[in-house]
Measured scan of single mutants.
Amino acid sequence: MPVRRGHVAPQNTFLDTIIRKFEGQSRKFIIANARVENCAVIYCNDGFCELCGYSRAEVMQRPCTCDFLHGPRTQRRAAAQIAQALLGAEERKVEIAFYRKDGSCFLCLVDVVPVKNEDGAVIMFILNFEVVMEKDMVGSPAHDTNHRGPPTSWLAPGRAKTFRLKLPALLALTARESSVRSGGAGGAGAPGAVVVDVDLTPAAPSSESLALDEVTAMDNHVAGLGPAEERRALVGPGSPPRSAPGQLPSPRAHSLNPDASGSSCSLARTRSRESCASVRRASSADDIEAMRAGVLPPPPRHASTGAMHPLRSGLLNSTSDSDLVRYRTISKIPQITLNFVDLKGDPFLASPTSDREIIAPKIKERTHNVTEKVTQVLSLGADVLPEYKLQAPRIHRWTILHYSPFKAVWDWLILLLVIYTAVFTPYSAAFLLKETEEGPPATECGYACQPLAVVDLIVDIMFIVDILINFRTTYVNANEEVVSHPGRIAVHYFKGWFLIDMVAAIPFDLLI
Rank of each mutant, 00 (worst) to 15 (best):
Pro2Lys: 06
Val3Thr: 11
Arg4Met: 15
Pro10Gly: 13
Leu15Tyr: 07
Thr17Val: 14
Ile19Pro: 01
Lys21His: 11
Lys21Ser: 13
Glu23Gln: 06
Glu23Asn: 06
Gly24Trp: 07
Gln25Val: 07
Arg27Val: 07
Lys28Tyr: 06
Lys28Ala: 13
Phe29Ser: 01
Ile31Val: 10
Ala32Lys: 01
Asn33Leu: 06
Arg35Thr: 09
Val36Ala: 14
Cys39Ser: 12
Val41Trp: 01
Val41Arg: 01
Tyr43Asp: 01
Cys44Leu: 01
Asp46His: 04
Asp46Leu: 05
Glu50Arg: 13
Leu51Lys: 01
Cys52Asp: 01
Val59Asp: 01
Leu69Met: 13
Thr74Lys: 01
Arg76Pro: 15
Arg77His: 13
Ala79Phe: 03
Gln84Pro: 01
Ala85Gly: 05
Gly88Met: 12
Glu91Gln: 08
Glu91Asp: 12
Arg92Val: 11
Lys93Asp: 09
Glu95Arg: 13
Ile96Glu: 01
Lys101His: 03
Leu109Phe: 15
Val112Arg: 01
Val112Tyr: 01
Val113Trp: 15
Lys116Asn: 14
Asn117His: 09
Ala121Asn: 05
Phe125Asp: 01
Leu127Pro: 01
Phe129Leu: 05
Phe129Tyr: 07
Glu130Tyr: 05
Glu130Val: 11
Val131Ala: 15
Val132Phe: 15
Glu134Arg: 14
Lys135Leu: 12
Met137Thr: 15
Val138Ser: 13
Val138Pro: 08
Ser140Gln: 14
His143Leu: 06
Arg148Met: 11
Trp154Ile: 08
Pro157His: 09
Gly158Met: 12
Gly158Pro: 12
Gly158His: 09
Ala160Asn: 14
Ala160Asp: 14
Lys161Arg: 12
Thr162Asn: 15
Leu165Thr: 14
Leu171Thr: 15
Leu173Pro: 15
Ser179Leu: 06
Val180Ser: 08
Ser182Tyr: 15
Ser182Ala: 06
Ala185Glu: 12
Ala185Asn: 07
Gly186Ile: 06
Ala188Trp: 01
Ala188Pro: 07
Gly189Tyr: 01
Gly192Leu: 03
Val195Glu: 01
Val198Leu: 06
Asp199Asn: 05
Ala204Asp: 05
Ala204Cys: 05
Pro205Thr: 05
Ser206Pro: 15
Ser206His: 15
Ser207Met: 11
Leu210Val: 15
Ala211Phe: 13
Asp213Lys: 14
Met218Phe: 06
Met218Ile: 07
Asp219Tyr: 06
Asp219Lys: 15
Asn220Asp: 07
Pro227Ser: 15
Gly236Arg: 09
Pro237Asn: 05
Pro237Asp: 05
Pro237Phe: 07
Ser239Phe: 09
Ala244Ser: 05
Pro245Asn: 15
His254Phe: 15
His254Met: 13
Asn257His: 03
Asn257Val: 14
Pro258Glu: 11
Ser261Phe: 12
Ser261Glu: 14
Ser266Glu: 14
Thr270Arg: 14
Thr270Leu: 05
Ser275Met: 12
Ser275Thr: 06
Ala277Asn: 13
Ser278His: 15
Ser284Pro: 09
Ala285Lys: 07
Ala285Arg: 11
Asp286Pro: 07
Ala293Leu: 09
Gly294His: 14
Leu296Arg: 15
Pro298His: 03
Arg301Phe: 01
Thr305Pro: 12
Pro310Ile: 09
Arg312Gly: 11
Arg312Ile: 07
Arg312Val: 11
Ser313Lys: 11
Gly314Arg: 06
Leu315Gln: 07
Leu315Glu: 15
Leu316Asn: 11
Leu316Cys: 05
Ser318Trp: 15
Ser318Ile: 07
Asp321Glu: 11
Ser322Asn: 15
Thr329Val: 07
Ser331Ala: 07
Lys332Arg: 07
Gln335Arg: 08
Thr337Gly: 12
Phe340Trp: 15
Phe340Tyr: 14
Asp342Cys: 01
Gly345Ser: 07
Pro347Ile: 04
Ser351Lys: 12
Asp355His: 14
Glu357Asp: 10
Glu357Cys: 14
Ala360Val: 15
Lys364Gln: 09
Glu365Leu: 07
His368Gln: 07
Thr371Cys: 09
Glu372Leu: 04
Val377Ala: 05
Ser379Asp: 04
Leu380Ala: 03
Ala382Asn: 06
Val384Phe: 09
